[in-house]
Design a binder for these strands. Structure first.
Lengths: 128, 128, 128, 128
DNA sequence: TTTT
DNA sequence: TTTT
């Protein structure tokens, strides 16, 4: 079947790296993705918080160059990881990344936003 | 920023429809997305279960034509809905769909699978 | 930067395979992608014809299992190949595929279309 | 079927706007998308030049705010437009955009590149 | 637990 | 015809 997700967001913390028993690097890159959409008449904001999981050489590059606040594009597949903890069923959604790209560091003065043309595509959507 | 997800999966139940106070149709379309990927030497299978939320005329078309087992392509954005229930913090990931497409009904005899070439793209990935 | 294209279409001919000097298999998979969109009041149809270029083991699998009429999903990047021929500048757009998936063969009797809900997302678009 | 393309690139010229007989704004936004990929041992660069076609209010926003050199994300579908000119068959590939986003203006001094981790995903690909 |  |  097919499972593809593409996100652009900002790191909410520095990446964390660990290594599998077989020695593969695995980085966790926690990001926030801001969206705006129309809800009837007014614009809503919403933020998605999710971790990207990055492997191998890319994991090491992430740890080396990225830190809190940086903007990245992440491409991969969505998965829900499930486990038990003290008899509790736990679950977490993550993006298993096969591709991550770094956007230029933002200049402190450069407050012009990552601009977004009003998303007409969503104009019929979003009740709740 | 940017938040795009594209999934192909099978309905795990019939869609459910409801209407917002302002009369907009909202359908919940629960799907299962099967993936295969290499983990070191062996192939793993994994299934993502998630609801697509569809609005307006598309919601009505889904309810009318789709049922359990049907295959769909869903395109939209990922969001985490959060709420409180009896003092508990709850949360659920969903796909807010701006586009849904129906695949042909599978003939009962036609058991040939939605085929998938071994995803070389993931060959370096996936420790856990 | 970022260059991603995802198409679902039907093969217009059987795939063709060739091998690079270094022995890598390269398959050409020619597809037709049908779209419908609103133009003002009426629905338009349009078909995109393009070749997917597939490498390695996937190229061999394509040649082995696919033939004219089969439906595939292709994911990759778009590129324009340019060359000279008899003093003429030639060019061709292709999808360099990193992923190709096979849909089930359609049963002859099963004429129900790969259905498409009217794409509200394009409702404001498309003059020409 | 399904036809989706997502590109991030730089404007090679200022956008141009025109209006259809029915008064809909149509902007042409010409972009260059740089890619790097491995070809056997060495890294190759390649640039895709293509026009994004943007409609309605988004067309006007593009003309107002974008100019040569700016970076944008474009999402839409690929199409080949065909016509005759002086007995010659002409054709042009374009992206019919349903979504365009503006990236921040780059500071002149800020020469740090839109960074790209070596795309392991393409490591098996690209003979030619 | 949250970024801009 | 090309951007960084």
């Amino acid at each position: 079947m097919f499972n593809r997700i593409i996100l652009i967001g900002n790191l909410t913390r520095d990446p964390e790296i660990r290594y599998t028993p077989s020695g593969v690097a695995v980085a966790t890159v926690p990001i926030a993705v801001n969206s705006r959409y129309k809800q009837g008449e007014d614009m809503r904001e919403e933020t998605l918080f999710i971790d990207a999981i990055v492997f191998g050489k890319q994991a090491e590059t992430c740890t080396q160059y990225l830190n809190k606040g940086r903007t990245v594009l992440v491409e991969g597949r969505l998965r829900e990881r499930r486990w038990e903890y003290e008899g509790q069923r736990k679950s977490k959604f993550e993006v298993i990344a096969n591709n991550i790209r770094f956007f230029p560091k933002r200049e402190p003065a450069q407050s012009e936003e990552f601009n977004q043309v009003p998303p007409e595509e969503y104009s019929d959507l979003e009740p709740f």
